[in-house]
Simulated assay, not measured.
Amino acid sequence: MQPLQTVLPNKSSYHTPSPGRPSFSLGLTQFEKTPTPSPLHSIHPTLKNIKLGETKEEQIRTWIVSSSLDENQELAKYEGREYMVLQRKDFWTLKPHSWVNSCVIQWMCYSFNDIDSSRFKRDFYCVCPGILEFVTRDNNVASFIDGVTPIYAGLSPSFGEDNRFFDKIVAAKRNWWLFPYCWRGHWWVYAFEVNAKRIVILDSLHSAPEDDKRDKLDAYVGRLCEDMASIAILGFVRTPYGPARSYARFQSNRTSEMKI
Results as ranks from 00 to 15, higher is better:
111 S>Y: 13
147 G>Q: 07
131 I>N: 00
123 D>Q: 12
76 A>L: 14
211 D>V: 04
253 N>F: 08
257 E>Y: 11
204 S>D: 07
127 V>Q: 03
131 I>V: 14
146 D>W: 05
213 K>G: 04
2 Q>G: 10
219 A>F: 03
136 T>K: 03
248 A>M: 10
164 R>W: 09
229 A>W: 00
134 F>D: 11
117 S>A: 06
220 Y>S: 05
232 A>W: 01
90 D>L: 00
76 A>G: 11
29 T>C: 08
186 H>D: 06
111 S>L: 13
98 S>C: 15
99 W>T: 15
115 I>G: 10
34 T>H: 07
11 K>Q: 13
56 K>M: 13
230 S>R: 06
147 G>V: 07
166 F>A: 00
209 P>T: 03
63 W>D: 08
161 E>A: 06
171 A>C: 05
165 F>V: 12
141 V>R: 10
91 F>W: 14
85 V>L: 00
13 S>I: 05
110 Y>H: 14
161 E>S: 09
38 S>F: 10
164 R>G: 07
95 K>C: 13
101 N>K: 02
82 E>P: 00
126 C>K: 02
232 A>L: 03
200 V>W: 01
84 M>N: 03
36 T>E: 15
73 Q>R: 09
77 K>D: 03
44 H>K: 05
105 I>W: 05
52 L>R: 10
195 N>A: 14
184 R>H: 12
251 Q>H: 15
63 W>V: 05
168 K>C: 02
142 A>D: 09
157 P>T: 08
184 R>K: 13
34 T>D: 13
140 N>Y: 01
80 G>E: 02
219 A>V: 08
236 F>G: 03
239 T>M: 06
30 Q>E: 06
172 A>M: 02
88 R>L: 08
37 P>R: 01
16 T>L: 11
124 F>T: 01
92 W>K: 09
127 V>W: 02
39 P>D: 05
109 C>M: 07
241 Y>I: 10
250 F>A: 12
182 C>P: 04
209 P>I: 05
237 V>M: 14
133 E>N: 11
110 Y>T: 08
258 M>S: 09
22 P>F: 03
91 F>E: 09
247 Y>T: 02
155 L>F: 11
75 L>P: 02
24 F>P: 00
49 N>D: 13
129 P>W: 06
180 P>H: 07
248 A>Y: 03
6 T>K: 09
254 R>G: 15
230 S>I: 01
139 N>R: 14
117 S>V: 00
218 D>H: 15
105 I>V: 15
151 I>D: 08
41 H>W: 02
231 I>W: 02
142 A>V: 03
82 E>V: 00
260 I>W: 11
132 L>Q: 03
241 Y>N: 15
2 Q>R: 11
146 D>F: 04
4 L>G: 15
26 L>Y: 02
86 L>N: 00
199 I>K: 04
42 S>I: 00
